[in-house]
Design a protein around this nucleic acid. Sequence first.
DNA 1: TATTGTTATACTCTATAACTATA
DNA 2: TATAGTTATAGAGTATAACAATA
Lengths: 156, 156
Amino acid sequence: MPTKRKQDAPQNPTPARSLGDLVGYHLRRASVFDLQGSTAALEEAGLRPISMSVLCNIIERPGISAADICRVLGMQRANIVSVLADLEEKGFLLRDTDKSDQRIQRLYPTDGGREIATKCLALLAEHEEHLLRRLDASERVELLRLLSLVWQPLST
Amino acid sequence: MPTKRKQDAPQNPTPARSLGDLVGYHLRRASVFDLQGSTAALEEAGLRPISMSVLCNIIERPGISAADICRVLGMQRANIVSVLADLEEKGFLLRDTDKSDQRIQRLYPTDGGREIATKCLALLAEHEEHLLRRLDASERVELLRLLSLVWQPLST
DNA sequence: TATTGTTATACTCTATAACTATA
DNA sequence: TATAGTTATAGAGTATAACAATA
């Protein structure tokens, strides 16, 4: 017995007739638009979007390892090194080698790190207000829900 | 009299409490997920997502110039050169210098170009079926609508 | 003076391979 | 052997500046 989809999504997907019919096209355009605005918004705080994401992870889960952040954010271990070095140099995080497994550096936010993160979230909220300017409150919630359904590997 | 939004979007945007509250975060994750799948899907046809987008523009508006494609897709004129060279080398497009303005090369699809584009749209439809596997038909339509509202500069 | 197509160049983001130290 | 952090490096994608030809 074949698994049933939520509603009958076409078994044989209907080929799009043009670029604009593809969700992926609009996804990319919207994401680029967002990234430009996010980058500009965070410039005032001296952070890049990726640094901000990494810092948020450290604040939300103090003691998290670099490898775990990479798994959460879907990035390569090699590419987080310079991000962490930058955040450390700016005094936004501390490293503490795990006592029982010396391969692992546990990462903790400093007070300054928490402050800058709060400021960045406010800057990003301002940017998102612009990003979502044509969507009402319920549409914003719905967009977030649909997007998370697209990429999140949760629930099977 | 201040312009009114669709519904009262907060005048003072509420800062998100974490990364996951930001639409931009989910936008980026979903877009990366899509791009990986699109790239893999098009690999079979020997095209990259950007080449496919450019070719679609030529098919949808035969005679379009490179500069116009760049304006439509939001890319730099410098960066379309190698894409067009590749498409031309593969026999998917023809260039014809405009008679009344010799700066402009009008671009036309070949039959082979139209064939490969049709094949690519089918491959992408298959990929999108996976991308949107957790969304029903009406949710897919709604996602596309909301995304286009985010990035499209249309209608003021 | 402005635009088209083009070259050269640099910078960011991402991906892979290999190393070391630990386990 | 497997994992964590790291280095080096290569590949995309994207950005700017400058040029010749044309308008």
